[in-house]
């Protein structure tokens, strides 16, 4: 469903992505990991056209992201994205956050949008906070609202960029639980995370990036047991220590 072929990207002289290739089929759950600055976030942002790239092609459900003629807002509306810092809109309640794009992008009426939003809030377990503003919610609650907001667009795939790394430890599991449920329901997911427990539990494949390259890509079990590259092994030993 998402094909990434030989994608390279530069910031000035600095190469952030170097000939990245991978593909994600419908229903796949792919975990992307790697050291800080290795280009994980950049790769995700290239997939939905938030960042332009200079070489290679990315296609989402048959639509080429890099093409000039591509309707990017439409393409983006079909891929849900969840950010490290939640990025809820502070002046709107949780409910309004979830309704906004349904109404403005999908053209749903207020009643339909609200009904759908309440169902999603129920699904992520925070109906009682529907009318609170983001600043009145804990990090874990905000991130669950953000997930509900992304799901409200009925996306064909979801991308998560370190969804739990800004959270206090006791809130991580409440967010991961929601993600595990999603994965089990068959959602196509690309998840940048260092939560290896989550990867083991639901990921079909793990991609390891370093210095803009996809260094290693393997089935989950194989990745943890028989990682081939020295870099991957070093990274894994560091991360699995705690």
């Amino acid at each position: 469903m998402i094909e990434i072929e030989n994608v390279s990207k530069w910031y000035g002289d600095f190469r952030v992505l170097a000939e990245c290739s991978t593909s994600v089929a419908k229903g796949d759950v792919v975990v992307v990991c790697g050291p800080s600055g290795s280009g994980k976030s950049t790769l995700l942002k290239c997939v939905n056209g938030l960042e332009p790239f200079q070489e290679g092609t990315i296609t989402v459900d048959g639509v080429s992201v890099g093409d000039k003629g591509t309707n990017l807002p439409k393409l983006r509306s079909r891929i849900g994205m969840v950010f490290q810092n939640f990025e809820l809109f502070p002046h709107m309640t949780a409910l309004q956050n979830i309704c906004l794009s349904q109404m403005k992008v999908l053209g749903r009426g207020p009643d339909e949008a609200e009904e759908r939003s309440m169902k999603l809030l129920e699904r992520v377990g925070i109906t009682e906070h529907a009318h609170k503003h983001p600043a009145q919610l804990s990090g874990g609650q905000q991130q669950r609202v953000a997930i509900a907001r992304a799901l409200a667009m009925d996306p064909i795939a979801m991308m998560f960029d370190e969804p739990t790394s800004a959270l206090d430890p006791e809130m991580i599991s409440e967010v991961l639980d929601v993600m595990v449920d999603l994965a089990k329901e068959g959602m196509t997911m690309i998840v940048v995370t260092h939560e290896m427990g989550f990867a083991r539990k639901v990921a079909h494949r793990v991609v390891f990036m370093d210095e803009g390259r996809i260094v290693e890509e393997a089935q989950t079990e194989a990745f943890f047991t028989t990682a081939r590259h020295e870099r991957t092994q070093m990274f894994l030993s560091k991360i699995l220590e705690h």
């Binding site: 942002k45 939905n48 938030l50 990017l72 807002p73 439409k74 983006r76 509306s77 079909r78 891929i79 849900g80 994205m81 950010f83 810092n85 990025e87 809820l88 809109f89 906004l100 794009s101 403005k104 992008v105 907001r149 992304a150 667009m153």
Partner: peptide
């Protein structure tokens, strides 16, 4: 923060929206 704009664009809003 830039993330707010990115979140808006990522859900399919146009720059104007």
């Amino acid at each position: 923060p830039r993330g707010q704009t990115q979140a808006g664009l990522a859900m399919g809003l146009t720059q104007f929206q």
